[in-house]
Structures are given as C-alpha cells and as structure tokens.
Amino acid sequence: MKALILSACCLLGLAACNTSDKSDNLLPIYGNREAVTKTVNGKTVTDTVYHTIPDFETVNQYGKKITRKSLDGSIYVADFFFTSCPSICPIMHRNMLKVYDEFKKSGNVKIVSYSIDPRHDSVAVLKNYADKMGITGNNWWFLQGDKQAIYKLAESYLVAVMEDNKAPGGYVHQGYFVLIDKQKRIRGSYDGTNPEQVANLIKDIKLLQTEPQSMIAQ
C-alpha cells in the first residue's frame, strides 16, 4: 500500500505540471508499459503495450449494470469516494460538478465515481446522493460493486484506498480525478480538492478530444 501511495503521489506531481510539459500538444500516457515484439509480413515489429484499466462489474445509481465495455468510445474521469465521507469527498464532488457542467452536453465524456463503501452505498443511496447534487442522465455514474474488487480496481487507477477505523468515516482514500482515454489508458491525474488542477483537467479533456487518430491504436 505504501508503494501504491508513493506511485500515485508521483503521478499526481507529474500531472500537476503536465500542462506545461505536453509534447507536440499530446497528453502523456501513464503507468507501466511493455515492449512486445511480433512478426508482421515477415518483418520483426516492436509495439508498446500500455497499462490499461481492466474489466470490472458494478451497478450505477439507476440499478443498471456498468462494466468496462459500458465506457467504450468515451473519454472519462474516475474517482473513488463514499457518500457518508465527512472530509474530502464533498469538496471533490463540488469541484467535479464543474467538469460535469462543462461536458454534460458532450457525447463522448463521462464521469464515474466508485463507492468504497458499497455496504452502505446501495443503489437507492447513490441515487439520492446524485439527486441532491442535481445529477441527471448518463454523463455521471455513481457506482457500487464488490468491495474487494473495487479496492483492487483502485490500484489500476493508481489510487490508494483502505479501511481505517481511526479515520473520519472509517476510510482513507486519495482524492484524485483520473483521466482515462478511449483506449482505457491513464492520461492524467489531478487533485480533486484543488480548483486549479480541476481547471487543468477540463483543459486536458478538451485537448484529448482533439487527439489525432494516430494516437488511438495501442
């Protein structure tokens, strides 16, 4: 867990300055990568395979099953929270509303918020939470699933979450907004409690929307 937290902090530090470090107007691709050599038409070709978000199975605030495939063709922003959070979650989601309002009429941008307290955060609780925030439609999903599976999934987003009876609300989690491209690759991470970084996230989503077709293939 300490290693995960360190990795995520490093990612956040890089993302915080990526608006000035972008090369050729492209966002960086984060996470591990592997060089894979194969033979194509008798020639040896080396491709780079990037870290991607794996499959998952959850239910949203409308009781609809949501998986990795549900996000096919979409750029999306992910975060981890719980509805009874007394600390950073309210701040995070007030800031996320800015992202929602900016892109709610866009056809290819979504937000997914994974609950880390699925025992309490039932479909009904998530729907009530969304309603209070004024969230409608399918641009922002609040997701509930198997607790251990969600915690494991958080590692794929380079976000640390854990139970801690001594922490406010009984959980510890990092307040990152993680930007994912249409190929399920991590393209940025932003402190969801920091309005300046959330503004950078909005700019980077717009940049990702204009990314050349040559960047689509892994």
Rank of each mutant, 00 (worst) to 15 (best):
M1F: 12
A3M: 06
L4N: 04
I5P: 00
L6R: 11
S7A: 14
L11F: 15
A15T: 13
A15S: 15
A16K: 12
S20C: 10
D21C: 14
S23K: 15
S23G: 09
N25Y: 14
P28A: 00
I29Y: 14
R33H: 13
A35M: 12
K38A: 07
V40L: 14
N41G: 08
N41V: 08
T44F: 08
V45Q: 09
V45L: 05
D47R: 08
T48R: 10
T48V: 15
I53V: 15
P54M: 02
P54A: 01
F56L: 04
Q61E: 13
I66G: 05
T67A: 05
T67Q: 06
R68N: 12
K69M: 01
S70I: 08
A78H: 08
F80K: 07
F80V: 10
F82E: 01
S84T: 12
C85V: 12
I91P: 03
M92A: 07
H93R: 04
M96P: 09
M96T: 04
V99P: 11
V99E: 00
V99G: 09
D101K: 15
S106K: 13
G107W: 07
N108C: 03
P118K: 02
D121W: 08
S122A: 03
S122M: 06
V123F: 07
V125S: 03
K127Y: 10
G134F: 11
N138G: 07
N138D: 15
N139L: 01
L143V: 08
L143R: 03
K147N: 01
K152Y: 10
A154L: 06
A154P: 09
E155G: 11
A160Q: 13
D164M: 10
N165S: 13
A167L: 09
G169D: 06
H173F: 11
H173T: 05
H173S: 07
F177G: 00
F177Q: 04
L179I: 08
L179G: 03
L179D: 02
K184M: 12
G188M: 04
G188N: 02
Y190K: 03
D191A: 13
N194I: 10
A199P: 04
K206D: 04
L208F: 09
L208W: 07
Q209V: 03
Q209E: 15
S214V: 14
A217I: 09
Q218Y: 14
Q218G: 14
